[in-house]
């Protein structure tokens, strides 16, 4: 594919967008895993959510 004399600008633009968005998506997935793991660890320790145990304030 010949993108003319300014091919570098096109490639850098697409690369920057790809890297930024991929980075964001990976961070979101990693963050989600971490929060889910933390939540599970707490629940295994026996800490119950307030909504799960009515009456406990």
């Amino acid at each position: 594919m010949d993108l003319g004399p300014h091919a570098a600008f096109i490639w850098i633009s697409y690369a920057a967008v790809t890297v930024t968005i991929t980075g964001l998506i990976l961070w979101l997935i990693a963050d989600g895993r971490k929060q889910a793991a933390d939540l599970e660890a707490l629940e295994r320790q026996g800490v119950k959510r307030r909504s799960a145990a009515p009456g406990v304030r």
Binding site: L3, G4, P5, A7, F9, I10, S13
Partner: peptide, 9 residues
Amino acid sequence: GETVRIMYI
């Protein structure tokens, strides 16, 4: 020319 392809992102 080809630089217009940057427009799509």
